[in-house]
Nucleic acid binder design. Structure first.
Lengths: 238, 238
DNA sequence: GTGGTTTTGTATCCACAGTCGAAAACCTAC
DNA sequence: GTAGGTTTTCGACTGTGGATACAAAACCAC
């Protein structure tokens, strides 16, 4: 018996894994898209992704699909986002798609295939299928998590000054934040820690900036937003 | 061409929609499970659910599956949770399952089929497939959202006293909260509003409790946990 | 060097949310 | 009435984060 099977009682559908890969590039939050060459949506921009294979999980599938676009090791974070199942989402026939959110630190510059390019999330080109709205979901998820987790580690280089980190947060959040409060809040929460080193001053001079790094390279919930709870036990939640 | 199709390049898989239906019953948070009569996992308890049909979305599918267990109108909230894709999650062959979180207000008592029953989330029986861990995900999601949204509306009756609401929150959160703070916080946030009526005092007497209701019957984010943001614009996020 | 400019780090003030404790309001039972 | 139990309201304390001011450390011009 093949591992792929179905029956009238158990209809089967092609399933694809999609990735919304985001990166802050030059002070702008970009999403990785590739240009479709064939119908449907020829010429429109689509999220990288492809069919789920018989023996892989969705997480493995999205990693495999991305391998043809970037080096997977450059992805500092990958999490499942949502599953789209509108029967009409692909005019060729029904497919179900599970979207993932992937983040690449700002200091990397992956080489992309010819048909693939970065686009500002704030000014998306014409997109294929429901991919535009999936990017919107990913953006909302990222922005929320920047507030109450340490996801920033996946957008920032290994070490950075507060000014550099501020630029990343401003680009990702889409609104202005002050370096002062960013530093104070992230330090108090234990999200950031000083490396002890300092960066050379710019050509205009100025006090040399201290270098910081994220304390943990894995996702942690850090915001004490869990209410109705004694202030002592403000620890782990999802 | 049928709407269900596949090819060697586009393998297809049976897809099922599962529901984690939660309700506070007698001061305890319960999940609805049904007892499997056939292998695999005969005798173990499973989440309600079933195959995704060719022309329905996952949301419609989960509603349809639940219709055989409870009246769907009793579900005050339903949201997508996550998609499980481990090739070995079903020993009969590969399936992909998308789980939903459903909530039923405490004042309802749906009639269940003979094979279906409520179980305390804190003491699950032997569960089938990966359903035990899916219940865990649902629980984490509910607990987080109780803190920063008004999901409580989906667990509470149309009107209630603060003491009754406290019991619901305690059961759902799994830790103690004081009625005083619950009332003040939810009132301040605009989540709760007074009906003007009051409940008759209990048999031991006491000041009659005021009756409250949730201000909105749909999900709203209410916690000002969006940090790095001017205090003026503390409005919408996901 | 000296002073001015630029950039970063630190200290404070203020507003506001949330916890805790206690007092006040209100009912029933006797 | 009075006692006891329950709910509501109120005030004080704490902690978090936004905004602002100021101090520290580098460069540049002269």
């Amino acid at each position: 018996m093949p591992s792929v099977w179905s029956s009238p009682e158990r209809p089967a559908y092609p399933h694809q894994a999609l990735a919304v890969v985001l990166q802050v590039r030059g002070g702008r939050l970009d999403v990785m898209l590739w240009r479709r060459g064939t119908e449907p949506f020829a010429g429109a921009w689509a999220l990288p992704g492809g069919p789920l294979l018989p023996d892989e999980t969705l997480g493995a599938s999205v990693a495999r699909q991305l391998a043809s676009k970037v080096e997977v090791a450059q992805l500092a974070h990958l999490e499942q986002l949502e599953t789209r199942s509108d029967p009409a989402r692909d005019p060729r026939g029904r497919t179900v798609a599970t979207a993932y959110l992937g983040l690449i630190p700002a200091h990397l510059d992956p080489v992309l295939p010819d048909d693939t390019a970065w686009h500002a999330v704030g000014a998306l080109p014409v997109t294929a299928f429901d991919h535009g709205s999936i990017v919107g979901s990913a953006l909302a998820r990222l922005r929320a998590k920047l507030s109450y987790t340490n996801v920033g580690f996946a957008l920032a280089p290994p070490t950075f000054t507060v000014a550099e980190l501020r630029e990343i947060y401003v680009a990702a959040l889409g609104y202005d934040v002050t370096a002062t409060n960013l530093q104070r809040v992230l330090l108090r929460r234990g999200v950031l820690e000083a490396t002890g080193e300092q960066a050379p001053p710019g050509r205009a001079g100025g006090r040399p900036a201290a270098l910081y790094r994220f304390a943990s390279p894995t996702l942690q919930v850090t915001d004490p937003f869990a209410v109705f709870r004694p202030p002592s036990a403000r620890a782990a939640h999802d």
